[in-house]
């Protein structure tokens, strides 16, 4: 019997640098993702996206290893297994939606996983309807609005029934309504995820813990650290006062 359950995914002693850059982005970096809902925050160029891409096997680190359920992933084949359990939502939804229609795009993953066209269609319908996107099925992907593209690309990943989601700046360029919708969707998901975002408010509403990536290291942030912020109220229709 194994008493201790390994984290779903782990990076161990990873050193990574981009070609032509002097300093590595990560040096001997360690990080693990358990089954939980976390946020990752950090300045531009701190390697948040790079970390996600290393986990998914899109980038190969110079040193170190990626562990999936406690086992080291050695090659592309291993990463193909990992990708069945971990889904990555890209920053730009246009990169993720390449099929002509929404239904075809959502069904792309399930078809690759070996489901029959009928099963894939059923899974896609179910996923879209869970996200409140039922009437989107026949829509042409490049005619969707930015917010719609984001929600549909989330559906394409959820259709593969992952155990963990990695979301790369999901609220970029989203309007308020879609942002609230996304918060709602994420809170109702019975799924672990890690979110990269600069949007503190969004992270506060969707995650339990927030980590900061800076200078190649990941540190946990205080939950309710005092902070100052500027804010505006929509259309000025929300009278309120601040307490001391």
């Amino acid at each position: 019997m194994m008493e201790y359950e390994a984290p779903l995914v782990e990076v161990q002693n990873v050193t990574f640098s981009y070609q032509g850059r002097k300093h590595p982005i990560f040096e001997e970096m360690n990080f693990s993702l358990e089954r939980e809902k976390i946020g990752l925050i950090g300045p531009n160029g701190s390697g948040k996206t790079t970390l996600f891409h290393i986990i998914m096997g899109l980038l190969v680190p110079r040193k170190g290893a990626v562990l999936f359920k406690g086992n080291t992933v050695h090659d592309e084949k291993g990463f193909q297994e990992l990708r069945k359990s971990i889904g990555l939502l890209f920053q730009d939804a246009d990169d993720q939606l390449f099929s002509p229609t929404v239904l075809e795009d959502v069904a792309f993953g399930p078809l690759n996983l070996g489901f029959s066209p009928e099963e894939a269609r059923e899974i896609s319908r179910q996923t879209l309807s869970n996200l409140g996107l039922s009437n989107f099925e026949p829509r042409i992907t490049h005619n969707l609005s930015g917010g719609e593209k984001k929600l549909v690309s989330l559906a394409t990943i959820l259709a593969m029934k992952p155990e963990l989601l990695l979301l790369d700046e999901p609220t970029n360029n989203l309007d308020q309504e879609t942002r609230f919708r996304l918060i709602d969707i994420l809170n109702n998901l019975d799924l672990s995820y890690a979110i990269i975002s600069h949007d503190w408010d969004f992270l506060e509403k969707t995650t339990r813990e927030v980590y900061a990536i800076e200078k190649g290291a990941v540190t946990q942030c205080e939950r309710a650290c005092l902070h100052e912020h500027h804010h505006a109220h929509l259309y000025g229709d929300h009278p309120h006062h601040h307490e001391d």
Binding site: H53, M56, L58, Q80, R83, K84, G87, L88, F90, D92, D95, Q96, F98, L103, E104, A107, F108, G109, L111, N112, L113, P117, A120, R121, T156, I157, M160
Partner: peptide, 19 residues
């Protein structure tokens, strides 16, 4: 990036049609 997105969704060089 599109190719990466396809790989992440387990694309293995073969397209399956839904229709």
């Amino acid at each position: 990036r599109v190719q990466q997105a396809m790989m992440l969704r387990c694309f293995n060089g073969r397209f399956y049609t839904l229709h």
